[in-house]
């Protein structure tokens, strides 16, 4: 009798300790980024491009990486929406219920979710070799779009699945085609969830470095066309942390802070979106 109470207490203690440890690791990460990044984050840091080369030059900021990241993740997100929205509508509106093909596609997307981003980078690189492209914004956009495709389409799929069947039937009975029903009823009904999926995918895209290291390259300049290489925040962190100069390392810390703040904002906004919009959705 005594032993099992001791065991109960012991394991309860261990569980709480493990939970505290995991939450602490998050806090430690955030605090480290803040403590290192805040002193480095001056106005010139986010309004100027690095001067004298990103690896050696001690002046200037990270504007190239901030804008590059936005262009790249933004382009990739748009491309991924163009692919995943039709897929998700096909899964839930067009295909017959319990279709084997749809289930296989879902399974394939789930598996794709687990594929490491470096493999997407390598695959993007083989596509670029095939088309004779050099490291460029376009190459990066393609690789990142493929990387976030599974995240986005599976997250959209989960919300579109929830749209009540009766709503679709009501639309059909008024004479609407499936396409009209999809665009005017399904997408509108699931819009908050779709936006959340888009945000999550954007966050994944903007934070990823391994998929763009081959495909987008790195540069001091702000990209002026799709064929130019583009700098990204994660790579700005990676490259500039490796230099022996404290001034250059500061740029890495500032990039880390900017990136982390973006991720935080995205995560909070998507949470608010889910909460406040689901109130008005017909259930």
């Amino acid at each position: 009798m005594k032993l099992r109470t001791v065991e109960e207490k012991l394991f309860q203690l261990l569980m709480i300790a493990a939970t505290i440890l995991i939450v602490t690791s998050l806090v430690v990460i955030l605090v480290t980024v803040l403590v290192k990044g805040l002193p480095a984050l001056r106005l010139s840091m986010i309004t100027q491009i690095p001067k004298g080369g990103f690896y050696l030059g001690k002046e200037g900021g990270i504007l190239n990486a901030i804008l590059g990241s936005f262009y790249l993740a933004g382009g990739a997100t748009i491309l991924a929406i163009l692919i995943s929205l039709p897929i998700v509508i096909y899964f839930n509106v067009y295909a017959s219920k319990g279709s084997v093909f749809v289930n296989l596609c879902r399974f394939s997307l789930d598996v794709l979710w687990g594929v490491p981003s470096i493999v997407f980078g390598a695959f993007g690189f083989t596509i670029m070799l095939f088309f004779g492209l050099r490291a460029s914004l376009l190459g990066g956009i393609i690789a990142v779009a493929l990387l976030i495709l599974p995240v986005m389409s599976r997250a959209m799929d989960e919300v579109v699945k929830m749209v009540p069947r009766d709503l679709l039937n009501a639309s059909y009975s008024l004479g609407a085609t499936r396409l009209e029903t999809s665009v005017k009823v399904v997408v509108r009904q699931a819009l908050p969830g779709i936006l959340t999926a888009v945000l999550i995918a954007f966050g994944r895209g903007i934070g990823d470095a391994a998929s763009v290291i081959f495909t987008a390259g790195f540069t001091d300049a702000i990209p002026t066309s799709l064929m130019r290489p583009a700098a990204t925040l994660p790579l700005a962190i990676f490259f500039q942390l490796g230099t022996p100069f404290p001034e250059v390392q500061e740029r890495a810390y500032a990039s880390a802070l900017v990136l982390t703040i973006m991720i935080l904002v995205i995560s909070i906004v998507s949470r608010i979106l889910t909460r406040s919009f689901t109130k008005h959705v017909i259930k």
Binding site: L26, R204, I206, L241, A256, L259, L264, R271
Partner: peptide, 23 residues
């Protein structure tokens, strides 16, 4: 705790790398 754990999943791997190097 659940949202915090989800947030941990969303942190980019280079940021993990920085913290690894610094701590």
């Amino acid at each position: 705790v659940k949202p915090l754990v989800d947030l941990l999943a969303g942190i980019p791997s280079v940021v993990y790398g920085i913290c690894g190097v610094l701590i």
